[in-house]
Design a protein around this nucleic acid. Structure first.
Lengths: 251, 251
DNA sequence: TTGGCTCGTTGATTCAGATCATAGCTGGAA
DNA sequence: TTCCAGCTATGATCTGAATCAACGAGCCAA
């Protein structure tokens, strides 16, 4: 699966004077900023915050960190898409979330990561040493509030996903997945249709608690019933979001 | 299902001078305090915090609030057990969590509750008007930090539950459920075995994404294999937590 | 150009859990 | 004490999704 370089995704920020170092503040150029943890910071705080960060890039399919690794950093995704997942000893895997620019990773209790994070596309992130991040949190009014608000949203999304995994049929799951991706694009001010799918059918299956074959059959059925149009295998249009939303919610 | 009054649960706090009003500070007597959002507060802050609260009791099987209700309050559970759930239009229901004393409810974005909360047993709670609670949060250092830490824990638990719902077999789900209840009891300094189950088989089924019959069969199988002992239908002993834990994690 | 990957789709068959049906148990009400 | 309603357990059957299998398309490397 190859993504068109300039379609359906936020552009990578332009190369910076001290890429992989500590440029003064490229935040002004960061397309993810307004959706990130750093959104409420004033100019001065933003500079202080960014000074703690190292900007990182990672190629598609690479692992950012693994479940069980000692947790030394937290991350703010600025470009690309990431999956976070947990696995059982025998290899069964559940993807618990797909992250988009502005999403935050690594917030954990304890001293090791509770899940694995992998790049679905080439990604860019701000990486913060966890102690510096914690200190900044406690010194900067509004930051914990912002993180709490983001965590609340994540918790609500997690509950929706539990309803999906526990009680929805295969077609309802796929419809819900597409709707929620579309909504997240729209919430970031980008078109909700068409959207590109940066993940494979196998990754969608691991997210929805299904197999590859069942996901494929659900796509086929939605396509034959006219609920979706597959321009390519990784590009979906929604002729009738309303009906799709009804399917997704079991209406 | 009747729970023995003084076994397996924290005792209800003794009747207070102004029950259902605003007593000065019974927090000293509150068995849930050290596990609650209020744990890190000093004596003075605790009194100010409690002054915002109304103490509430609710009978078994009553609804505290419903998905979609306008959200005016947040709650701190001090005694008993609560289920939180979401439902689809046709009645399919997913219980997303069982809350124990010290757990916090109602934290939500937007102006309505995103889930339904029901009393599994007679319960006692501290109820806070949401604006007063928010104001206290912003005025009291450490409170948002504490809530963020609680939300992180909930998020980690939610991810575990997604792995369960997406990828575990029926027996693994029931074993995981029992282990996690046992662990939560132990974390509160109470015995991890035997434990009482304040919920019906139907509620366990709605929590595990199964049917009543499948939950019942899984209990029977675990019992016949010697992994659990059912003293009564709502009281479980664990002769071998190690093996049960292995079953739960797919080992 | 060819060969060998991976990925996605589709068909045939199997199976874990859902559904349907029945019966025993328990606790509260009369 | 009896009765009844709700809960739990268990057997029989059904079914949605998993598994097993085959194949075509796209892509890269030789």
């Amino acid at each position: 699966m190859t993504l068109p370089p300039s379609e359906g995704r936020l552009p990578l920020p332009p190369a910076l004077p001290r890429e992989n170092g500590r440029p003064s503040s490229p935040c002004a150029l960061c397309a993810a900023r307004q959706f990130s943890v750093c959104a409420p910071l004033d100019q001065d705080s933003q500079v202080r915050f960014f000074a703690l960060a190292t900007t990182i890039r990672l190629e598609q399919r690479r692992t950012l960190f693994q479940e069980g690794d000692p947790a030394g950093h937290v991350f703010n995704l600025t470009d690309g898409a990431v999956s976070i997942s947990k696995a059982l000893a025998d290899g069964r895997r559940q993807i618990t979330g797909f992250l988009l620019p502005g999403d935050f990773l690594g917030l954990q209790q304890g001293d090791s990561y509770a899940y694995t994070a992998e790049a679905l596309t080439p990604i860019a992130l701000c990486r913060f040493p966890i102690e510096k991040f914690q200190r900044f949190l406690s010194e900067t009014p509004g930051m914990e509030h912002r993180l709490l608000s983001m965590a609340s949203n994540e918790l609500a999304a997690a509950q929706d996903q539990m309803l999906l995994l526990g009680r929805k049929t295969a077609v309802e799951r796929v419809a819900s997945f597409l709707i929620s991706l579309s909504d997240r694009h729209a919430a970031r001010g980008r078109p909700g249709s068409p959207i590109s799918l940066p993940m494979t059918r196998g990754e969608i299956a691991d997210y929805l608690g299904l197999t590859i074959e069942t996901v494929s059959r659900a796509f086929t059925r939605l396509r034959k019933e006219g609920r979706i149009v597959l321009d390519t295998v990784d590009r979906v249009r929604f002729p009738d979001l309303g009906t799709l939303r009804e399917i997704a919610t079991g209406g």
